[in-house]
Design a protein around this nucleic acid. Sequence first.
DNA 1: AAAAAAC
Length: 490
Amino acid sequence: MTDHTPTPAACFDTLPLDAKLLRAVADQGYATMTPIQAKAIPIVLSGRDVMGAAQTGTGKTAAFSIPLLQRMLQHENSSASPARHPVRALVLAPTRELADQVANNVKAYAKHSQLRVACVFGGIDIKPQMEELRRGVEVLIATPGRLLDHIEAKTAALHQVEYVVLDEADRMLDIGFLPDLQRILSYLPKQRQTLLFSATFSTEIKRLAQSYLQDPELVEVARPNATASTVEQRFFSVEDDDKRRAVQYLLRERGITQSIVFVNSKLGAARLARSFERDGLKTAALHGDKSQDERLKSLEAFKRGEVELLVATDVAARGLDIADLPAVFNFDVPFNAEDYVHRIGRTGRAGASGLAFTLVTKSDARLVGDIEKLIKRKLDLEALELEDDRPRRPRSDWERGREEPGRGESRGERGADEGRRAAGPRYAPQAPRDPFFDKPYVAPERTEQPAWEAAPAPTAAPRGATGNIRPKKKVAALFGAKQTAPAAES
DNA sequence: AAAAAAC
């Protein structure tokens, strides 16, 4: 008896796809389908509505855009009015960056066809978008607000839409886009194919699907709340004041060339980015208080490898696809456990391995408990013992402001901590001793084998060797007995 | 506690 060998992944060229699409897929370097593609593409080709649960980074965009393009190509010549080109496919996404990214993917798949793909979102001049729409667009990717602007300005005619995709639908509901979605969908023909993708199937999502999808087929590849097994998740107990140093320590310790540092507030992101920049790290910020132009520039610089750290709010948590991103930091524990899953989903994409480091302070105990419940895993906290041999700049006024008496609860603890710090001048400016801080930042080379894979393997993490990371403790042990009873109270 | 989106 032969034991069952894994079934070989199906290739795109086994699908009944137009040669133009197959060529575009091959141009992208894809041969085999991901699980969601293998499941969803035939269903979409059959014309059925789809309700898809797929983690980001699973090839979701290709899973819906390739079969939709195929269906559009099949009917390319049957267009009633060849002179005019109404929007035939509409894709809605929750954030501007996501819309832009989806559009770039769809454009790549459509590049050998005559189908025109455009993207509209807010924060940038509407006039070029109007001009592009006026010239004619078959596939439109949009964020809801700006699309409504175009509808009102009568620059987007949606009365001929045949295909609709609601991407990251749960996020769109979170943001409060439901009224906008309802309005947009009311402009569309009832006779259409609708695809809905969501990380979770909450009651709200189910209700949305019930209203706007017809007899949808459920496509589920990974448990919606599962985290990629290829991501090494570590939780470090730190104090607020040590977070920045902890990040820099871990970057060095694990040889991380690039990472996203997630924070909970826009202001926090701006400040932290400035601090890292002052520390000599090539840093960019990405949050909703930046102009759209700056946001796109930050993201592009990061994707090109010119920027080492991207300090971001949850605007970057979902869906963004950054190739070979070795690590993600949760500088702040996210308020919603679900966002934790999305944040760490930026790394370890497409089967690559990744690191997800979360910095936990005492006040985060409850949030960590929420994460434990969501990912159904017991989490261990590790203590970082940061040596005080790092060159430090004087703290900013803001940082000093944080030490006002009466803020935070860790006054007592801090006394002992200050004693330890007294061993070395913590903030005294001095010449950098560490080559890490000396050498100018060099953009990491994009190679087949990412540089970080050469870094110490997860199991060979030099914790013991350096003695800088103390053994793991149960969350409960660090935060008191409250955490031991995960059962919902009251 | 906050973030995301239209002006």
